[in-house]
């Protein structure tokens, strides 16, 4: 009988074989007929998910439609579902910016570099912490957790980065946040709960070292958590702008979000001391740009998601525990 303690019941070899025998049996039996309870559940499940889909999709469609509408239509609240007086002026305004492509590539560069470093360092921190016999893990955990709450503030941090000679380089954006303690904790939890201890015991018996075990056994089985980490870190780097604005001096090095924000601010500037010719830039355009910017800014990350999703395939564990 499968119970809440099913995991620890896995300890006995008999159960492992049971799993294999059952799946063979299930395959021979053919498709499983649904019980009435299951049908009800399915109906509720589909209904709930469809409901969620609609309430989430509608505002998204709105954002998309607004971004392709004429400024006046947006500002007067005429856009509801589809673009009103189709216009690409929001996008042409954005793409007209000469520096945009370069900053886009810069962001890709920073995101790729940063995510790679993040991933490595997070695993290098999370895996040892997940090993129960790793002496000092409590202390190390404490050292890391303390930094989640307490820090010195922007100025000492900036001075440090500068004194290390990292100012105006991409290293300043990528090294200080090499690990996010939150993500380390999440990864550690995954390692300690999803990788069965039996595997480690078997590997130990075979005489394989910690690093070998990590690389050859743990990581291949950790595709889901690695995918999640990639997603978290990549999105973080892609959306970051504050640190970028603080640490980058050369305009040539600026990243995507910096440019996007500038475009938005420029068209939103309501400082009354500004020349009327700037105010002349339609207020509606400023409103419109907000929507176009979201579409432009988030598309790369949205395109990334299916690749992440690929790794959330169930049943990675099947066959992991063999004799």
């Amino acid at each position: 009988m499968v119970t809440a303690r099913g995991k620890s019941a896995r300890g006995s070899s008999g159960y492992r074989d049971l799993g294999r025998r059952l799946s063979d049996k299930a395959k021979r039996r053919g498709p499983i007929r649904l019980t009435p309870a299951d049908t009800v559940f399915n109906v509720i499940m589909y209904a709930a998910l469809a409901f969620v889909l609609i309430i989430v999709a509608y505002p998204l469609i709105f954002v998309l439609s607004a971004s392709f509408s004429e400024p006046y239509a947006v500002i007067s609240g005429q856009v509801w579902l589809y673009p009103v007086r189709f216009s690409t002026v929001g996008y042409t305004t954005i793409f007209r910016d000469a520096g945009l492509m370069r900053t886009f590539l810069n962001s890709v560069h920073v995101t790729a570099l940063g995510t790679a470093i993040n991933l490595m360092c997070t695993v290098m921190a999370a895996y040892p912490l997940s090993v129960k016999t790793f002496v000092g893990r409590g202390v190390f955990m404490g050292i890391l957790s303390f930094t989640m709450f307490f820090g010195g503030g922007l100025i000492p941090f900036f001075l440090l980065v500068r004194n290390l000679g990292l100012y105006n380089t991409y290293w300043a954006l990528v090294l200080p946040g090499a690990i996010s303690v939150y993500n380390v904790i999440v990864a550690r939890t995954f390692f300690s709960t999803s990788i069965p201890y039996e595997l480690y015991e078997a590997a130990e018996l075979d005489g394989c070292s910690d690093i070998y075990y990590l690389i050859r056994v743990v990581l291949p089985l950790s595709a889901p958590i690695l995918a999640v980490l990639v997603m978290y870190y990549a999105v973080g780097h892609w959306n970051a702008y504050f640190n970028h604005m603080i640490f980058l001096k050369d305009k040539a090095k600026f990243t995507f979000q910096i440019t996007l924000r500038s475009i938005l601010i420029q068209n939103q500037n309501s400082d009354m001391m500004i020349d009327a010719s700037v105010l002349q830039r339609q207020q509606g355009l400023a409103d419109l740009l907000k929507y176009s910017l979201i579409v432009v800014s988030s598309t790369p990350m949205l395109l990334l998601y299916p690749f992440i999703q690929k790794h959330f395939v169930k049943g990675v564990m099947v066959g992991a525990i063999k004799g």
């Binding site: 006046y72 500002i75 007067s76 609240g77 105010l279």
Partner: peptide, 30 residues
């Protein structure tokens, strides 16, 4: 601005603003 820009009818009798285009659309927009 949405109130003042309603395409169906003119709704605003008066409003407080730095400029008129913060209440009704500027000529270039409307």
């Amino acid at each position: 601005v949405q109130l003042g820009s309603d395409p169906a009818a003119i709704l605003l009798g008066g409003f407080t603003s730095f400029t008129w285009w913060q209440g009704v659309p500027a000529d270039v927009d409307s």
